[in-house]
């Protein structure tokens, strides 16, 4: 058995805008091994977010196959993809996307509502996830009472609380200052190293990419080059 977690084969993704046909991803192949931490760089519009969405089962390729673990995403219904995502994927966004009406702890607990865990167990796991990101003392704060860096930590706790294998991060430090960004990146690095999370991180920031094991460069919907850190 190979150690490959993600196998993308001959992926194309075509959008139609009116009569215009936009090929955002063009015959792309990509393999990601279990435990990899890779950065995805490239100019705006090169298809990074689109690729990430395909990896997370938020979108389907126009052609080609997406295999992650045993799941063949290109063949799955949207309901099956939802269930699969809940177990296998953690998402981290540039703008955190926390629910403003819930405390940090309740935000982190959210994905666990989809499990059969008891309320007590859910709370315990959410608290554990918050302590992994170093925010135990902010459990009862609402997002508006937290700094950007703290909000992103809560979002990371939410992404790891159901213990998924693969973390997908779309410009996770894009909205943070250098110092805070470094803390977040160190946290991702620790999750990769100590908790064996496979991480794909889209970034514009060369310094951020240094935290990954290697960087893939995208250009016009294809993978242009690969460099190791």
């Amino acid at each position: 058995m190979s150690n490959d977690l993600v196998i993308l084969k001959d992926i194309s993704r075509i959008y139609h805008k009116g009569k215009e046909r936009v090929e955002v991803l063009h015959r792309l192949d990509l393999t990601i091994a279990n435990g990899d931490f890779l950065a995805l760089m490239g100019p705006s519009g090169s298809g990074k977010t689109t690729l990430l969405n395909l990896l997370g089962g938020l979108d389907k390729p126009t052609s080609g196959s997406v295999k992650i673990g045993d799941a063949e995403l290109h063949n799955m219904s949207s309901s099956a993809l939802s269930k699969w995502r809940a177990v296998n994927i953690g998402f981290i966004f540039q703008f955190y996307n926390l629910l403003p009406v819930l405390t940090a702890l309740k935000n982190v607990e959210l994905p666990l509502l989809l499990t059969n865990l008891s309320a007590k167990e859910r709370k315990k796991r959410a608290a554990t996830a918050l302590s992994i990101v170093g925010l135990d003392d902010r459990a009862d704060h609402y997002p508006r009472e937290l700094s950007g860096g703290q909000e992103q930590r809560v979002a990371i706790a939410r992404a790891i609380v159901s213990d998924p294998n693969l973390l997908l991060c779309d410009e996770p430090t894009g909205d943070l200052d250098r110092e805070t960004a470094d803390e977040i990146l160190k946290l991702l690095q620790a999750l990769n190293r100590d908790h064996n999370k496979t991480i794909v991180m889209v970034t514009h920031d060369g310094q951020a990419a240094q935290y990954a094991q290697y960087t893939l460069h995208m250009d016009k919907g294809t993978l242009a080059s690969r460099e190791s850190a």
């Binding site: 997370g56 938020l58 309901s79 939802s82 995502r85 809940a86 998402f91 629910l99 959210l110 989809l114």
Partner: peptide
């Protein structure tokens, strides 16, 4: 809308 999309991202079904 973004919040509802996040719920779906987390695995909440339609």
């Amino acid at each position: 809308i973004p919040e509802l999309a996040v719920l779906k991202t987390l695995g909440f079904e339609d």
